[in-house]
Design a binder for these strands. Sequence first.
RNA 1: GGAGAGUUGGCCGAGUAGGUUGAAGGCGCUCGCCUGCUAAGCGAGUAUACGGGCAUAAACCUGUAUCGAGGGUUCGAAUCCCUCACUCUCCGCCA
Length: 422
Amino acid sequence: MLDLKFVRNNPQVVQEALAKRGTKVTLDEFLRLDEERRERLFVVEQMKNRRNVVSEEIGRLKKSGKDAPDLVVEMRDLSKEIKDKDETVRELDEKLKAILLDIPNIPHESVPVGESAADNAVVRTWGEPRSFDFTPKPHWDLGESLDILDFERGGKVTGARFCFYKGLGSRLERAVISYMLDLHTTRHNYVEIFPPFMVNSDSMVGTGQLPKFAEDMFKIENTDYYLIPTAEVPVTNLYRNEILDGEKLPILHCAYSACFRAEAGAAGRDTRGLIRLHQFNKVELVKFCKPEQSYEELEKLTADAERVLQTLGLPYRTVVLCTGDMGFSSAKTYDLEVWLPSYQEYKEISSCSNFEDFQARRAGIRFRNGRGKAELAHTLNGSGLAVGRTVAAIIENYQEADGSVTIPEVLRPYMGGLARIG
RNA sequence: GGAGAGUUGGCCGAGUAGGUUGAAGGCGCUCGCCUGCUAAGCGAGUAUACGGGCAUAAACCUGUAUCGAGGGUUCGAAUCCCUCACUCUCCGCCA
């Protein structure tokens, strides 16, 4: 959410910034409602002031044994009118809030302007895609022949886009999760969180999934709870409506969670394998920091996620998303894309974003600054990494001609010393 | 699921025959004084949001709101009533 006063004072700046995203916003309606709200608020607050003053006077009169029936009658009418006008202000408040909640974040000035993923800029590339002296197989074929992934039964037991891991497949998934968490907690100083996998709607509003993207989520019937699409939601909302100690910033958290996404509008895309499931595992990195730190922290967070790929020996590249391809809440996003032989291209495996104060304003996440004043924090997060896609990348990039898969060195301690599957 | 108790400021904790209580007192914190240093002591200050003064920002002044959330009664509610959420205790059930 953008700052109401900023939008009020700089409508032109906001419109231009959002036009770069391909979002056409007209703020005329917003500005009109805002002005009306302030006018009406002023009037009703003056009425309340009179009520307060007179009520106190009535109290004083009663105490001294006098009565003031005429004042009481006048105040009775005034109170009715206040109630009425309060309601009008409340409605205007809601309309303004609804508009604000639907406006995406303003891109940072360093973000390249563009319309689609085609305009994203490659920042750096790490590793060389391996050249195979045999025809590499996609991970869904290898997974089946090694009997470690079962998509068919996933479809039977639940439905499309669900999968069973089995045997060493399950162990590999678990090993990747543990390895990532250990790396981030011991080498990168993140404090581990194990969050709820369901959150209430306030939390979803806080990080920006609601109200605009309800169709992307699974909602639990007859409750206010949603399955989380990412640990970003519970972990960022950890400090919702809190004022943090400025001395404690930056706060770094990492969290494993299952993630649930409806994938509305993704029909037909990535239909095979582990790439796009309704349920997948992810280790998430989340940061809370002061505004002046957040871009430095974004670089560090991205580097922390990259280290996972580097130590796993998976070739990847880092791209900075252009204005037209960025997520709703983000001011700047780096995507990490891992090389997938089956796709013959780089595929997103992590997304690292700086939201600046966009989520913090929605969620009321503040800190006390040096002058003792409460100030909005900046929030960041990034995958570190998507586990299913990591497993897919390992299977494909480490496959051998005989259909077996070599286990990356760093994972072997988590696999009981095993060096190979199959 | 049944019965009961509770939810007040950064923290602890007062506050029901409704009326200078944004809220006593304490702790913490900030600034000043004091002191050879530390500790102690003394004095002052110490919530947030949204309006108005204001023309851009800060500061300042002022108004309104906020004692879990929402609604009601009343001229007036932290105090009375209703609904909901959460916490705690006991019982039941359960991994």
